[in-house]
Design a binder for these strands. Structure first.
Lengths: 214, 214
DNA sequence: TAGATTGTTAATCGATTAACAATC
DNA sequence: TAGATTGTTAATCGATTAACAATC
């Protein structure tokens, strides 16, 4: 009964399995084989098998594969999508707006409960039914509501300052959409939604392997 | 004169170096040492040195480090941020809106030139000075303007269909914001902006290492 | 010169893949 | 039983880290 170790990269593949499993479940299917997933996602069969085995509470059955229903529960548990994790967002600009309006987050176990913005005009408004407060109310609000996640959706120039305020407000993890490195005390996690890095990969592919040789 | 190999992961760290180098350049600084970067970003000194060496066109100088100006150019070249890459976006909802309004993309070498949306009401409007067309115009537009990048910002349910249309329109790379796996022909790259995976990492940290043990 | 910092070569670590036995 | 698919153990691969020589 070792604590099965799920590698960081396997963790990143889990949401894709989960999404497909839910779809198949809705279609009335009951089993999935590693081979089938491998084909769908373009992973190797062995990799999928290892991934599924590392999270599944029940063994896969030779010749049939893994049972879909328990697997859904297992993956949701591993991912943490089962708990409802409360988050606040800082920055009610167009990105903040998009995130607050996003319907799918509840499915990922995250609930955005409020936003904060330095702009006086935005104070007091609601976006998708969620209140927007002034920055000065952040600390009190986060403490009272035991918020653990802060989402940074402000321009680069304000990001570090906002990040510091979030830390002071008792936040434990920061989801950062600003394109820069945030400096935080030990014990606080910064998860970067690194669009620049994504684009870099994309361009690399476009230009092919032969470029910059001389 | 080997083609220096920049690893995939190093590639993802480059935007952070670039951002900081630009900042330092603006402050009038001329050199950066690996040690200093390591401290700033929480990487190891050796890793930073290897990263910088792998892209730098000029050797670093013992005791001083790397010259900032040429390094900026080198990293921009490696990342592909120098060329202006034209992209179209599909889905003019709140996320599409946020992406179209985002000022920083030009700095990353990407230019969003138009959006497409199935909603009749959105046809003909402009968002941040960029036109929104109906879906039926996509293929013609992309061919005529030799668009290589398509951004998918539609709900999950429409994503695969949109993806197929983009491929038919001659797109070479897809930047996918929908939370599912897209199936594409060989040779087409899908770069996922995988928010679910980010959140999974974040939750894992919040709940600490001890969870799901029994 | 002395010392800080780079560059290079080898060792380690983690993740993926391969080979093959186990089992429904 | 036969065959498909799982599970496990070993081999490979890529990235990081360590050790140390080179050099401004």
């Amino acid at each position: 009964m070792d604590e099965s170790v799920v590698s960081k990269q396997a963790m990143q593949r889990m949401p894709y399995y989960l999404q497909k499993l839910k779809e198949m479940h809705a279609e009335g299917k009951t089993e999935i084989s590693a081979r089938l997933f491998a084909e769908m996602f373009g992973f190797t069969e062995i990799q999928v098998r290892k991934d599924l085995a590392s999270v599944s509470s029940v063994h896969g059955k030779p010749k049939v594969g893994f049972k879909i229903s328990p697997l859904i529960v297992d993956i949701e548990n591993v991912l943490g999508f089962k708990h409802e994790n409360k988050a606040v967002i800082v920055g009610a600009g167009s990105l903040g707006h998009a995130l607050m309006s996003h319907k799918g987050f509840s499915e990922y176990g995250i609930e955005i409960v409020a936003a904060f913005d330095a702009d006086e005009d935005k104070k007091g408004i609601e976006i998708s039914g969620k209140p927007v407060y002034g920055m000065e109310q952040m600390q009190k609000f986060c403490n009272e509501n035991r918020i653990e996640i802060g989402i940074v959706a402000v321009p680069q120039i304000a990001a570090q300052r906002v990040c510091d305020s979030l830390v002071l407000s008792g936040i434990k993890a920061i989801w950062n959409f600003a394109p820069l490195h945030l400096t935080v005390p030990r014990g606080i996690l910064v998860q970067n939604e690194n669009m620049a890095a994504s684009l870099a990969m994309l361009f690399k592919h476009l230009r092919g392997v032969s470029d910059g040789t001389d």
